[in-house]
Design a protein around this nucleic acid. Structure first.
Lengths: 332, 332
DNA sequence: TTGTACGCGTTATCAA
DNA sequence: TTGATAACGCGTACAA
């Protein structure tokens, strides 16, 4: 059984295609009587407009692309839910793409999405390539980026208050009496990385503790990265009693490493992470963390895309998302 | 700057649209000389075919739908990666949809995907509604379902060996000397639930241990579900020394509950889960589990969709995925 | 208020 | 080997 077309509906209702189109899209003037007649035919045939055909003429696909490093990374599924739920409410679909934080792959994916004809693109992650992004944005809009900074009329930005979050985390550790506080940082360059180190430094300095770069170890922002980095840090600086980690994955890796070194958390070593992923509240010991509303990031990003679509000429202010500190077993 | 069309390429190359199409799609006969001439024009203009227009005539969108309960559930991101990576290799895109295990939502999503024109649909999760699925499958193909059983020519099935996995887990606990073994089951009906209980029963009976339904507590297959279920089970049957859980999330919830009850895992209580999600190897104590290759599920599902697309008339055998037991700290 | 005619960008059919 | 023409299903000026 072939799918019904607008032509079939028109024939059944005894009107023209145009009238059917009007009835469906609530556009133009149409008499209630004929509208009802058309809708009855629509129901009877189970008619659904063909999206491809619609797209051809409207230049809208009702699809957005979501570009993230890796959906398996505990941070991103919640963001994805925020994007998808919001998209669904507005009758939009989401095309999900993973880049594994590879700049080349990111560009490849972006071009693919553009060719596919998505109405907008949301980008998360650290892959840099400022110039390549600039070039891409020259020929595509709208784009929303999270935790990156690119000044381009076609790109809108959502930022988490990374510096303040890091400040809160480290200030908390200081308040708990710690003076020798290390940091497990993200070895990859990223805007959030820079901000979080700055917050770490600021908290130390404001409390009269010397900032010592030697206490910062860079590693990949993963469980393994945190695991290895903590071992290295404690090897070089056994006097450390607390660490602030770039994210929760590293924090949990650090706890696991401490555990394997027969160190008690928080007694021998306090740990505070960043992002507050779901896992952190469950882990034993539970991990203190800077809370970021990941679902909201997704919501905001999707809504901003819709706004940009509605008002292509308007320029929107960057969105700043606040953070809060959640203290748990790992630091108290 | 507007996007180049096939017409622009034809004009620049001094040939007809059709010739351009032939050059690009490697179809039909075409002289190497003209082909090269066309390709040069393509490069010069940065031409990319319009997918919507292609879809109009080919009836192919190069897009598949992936329907899962919740991407935030630790099981599904890995499956999604398997699907997406495989799709990408074949120049396909993936539309991700969450159902929250709601049967109505599932049907809604399926209809939406059909309207969107996806070339195939992969469905995971427990939402039942056999008859509704039958009806849907009557008007749509191809469909691949994981861990469900529906006999329909348009539906292909991938099954994990749930019964054997459960059997391995419980036999292992018995071998460790346990005789009083409870189970935290999935309160929602699902094919995998039934199979896992059956494996649990089989392992007990084959080892001369009486099967007692009172030792099975049903709960939602989540961290909280496992947490609450274990408390209930130990309250009613304090003699229990080991539990097998429907999945790892429940298993970790159970460990957390035991921890809060001041019970040592595995000394006071051994725990074995199912699925072997990434978290299980990291948790303290690490969780023994039945390993399921989630990435492979995604790969196989996507490949099967492609196979069905290639050979619509052919009927394919269900895919059975083996499992293995991974023993860790929680049971040894 | 309703219908006619055209165009969106591509592939398929058939004739040259 | 190539090109003209028709379709795919829909929205939208414009005419009636």
């Amino acid at each position: 059984m072939k799918r019904a077309t607008i032509e079939d509906v028109a024939a059944l209702a005894g009107v023209s295609r145009q009238t059917v189109s009007r009835a469906i899209n609530d556009k133009g003037e149409i008499s209630p009587a004929t509208k009802e007649k058309v809708m009855a035919a629509v129901r009877q045939l189970g008619y659904r407009p063909n999206r491809q055909a619609q797209s051809m003429v409207t230049q809208r696909t009702h699809t957005v692309g979501l570009v993230i490093p890796d959906i398996s990374n505990l941070f991103f599924p919640e963001v994805a839910r925020g994007v998808q739920d919001t998209a669904q409410q507005h009758n939009y679909n989401v095309l999900l793409c993973n880049t594994d934080d590879d700049p080349n792959e990111e560009i490849r994916v972006l071009n693919s999405l553009q060719a596919q004809g998505v109405d907008g693109i949301i980008i998360l992650g650290n892959a840099a390539e400022q110039t390549a992004m600039q070039t891409f944005a020259d020929s595509y809009a709208p784009i929303v980026m999270v935790n990156r900074f690119i000044d381009h009329p076609n790109i809108n930005v959502i930022n988490v208050d990374n510096e303040h979050g890091a400040f809160l985390a480290v200030a908390h550790l200081i308040q708990q009496g710690h003076r020798k506080i290390g940091m497990l940082a993200n070895k990859n360059f990223s805007r959030s990385q820079v901000r979080r180190v700055r917050g770490y430094e600021k908290a130390l300095t404001e409390n009269g503790i010397p900032y010592d770069e030697a206490l910062i170890v860079g590693a990949s922002p993963t469980l393994e990265g945190g695991y290895n980095a903590l071992q290295q840090l404690l090897g070089e600086h056994p006097e450390i009693t607390a660490v602030f980690t770039y994210n929760d994955l590293m924090g949990i890796g650090a706890i696991r490493a401490a555990h394997d070194l027969a160190k008690q958390v928080p007694h021998d070593l306090a740990v505070v992470g960043f992002d507050n992923i779901g896992l952190s509240s469950i882990f034993i010991p539970s991990l203190s963390s800077v809370h970021v509303d990941k679902y909201e990031i997704g919501q905001r990003a999707m809504n901003r895309i819709l706004d940009m679509l509605d008002s292509p000429e308007q320029s929107f202010a960057p969105i700043e998302l606040p953070v809060t500190l959640v203290t748990r077993e790992s630091s108290t």
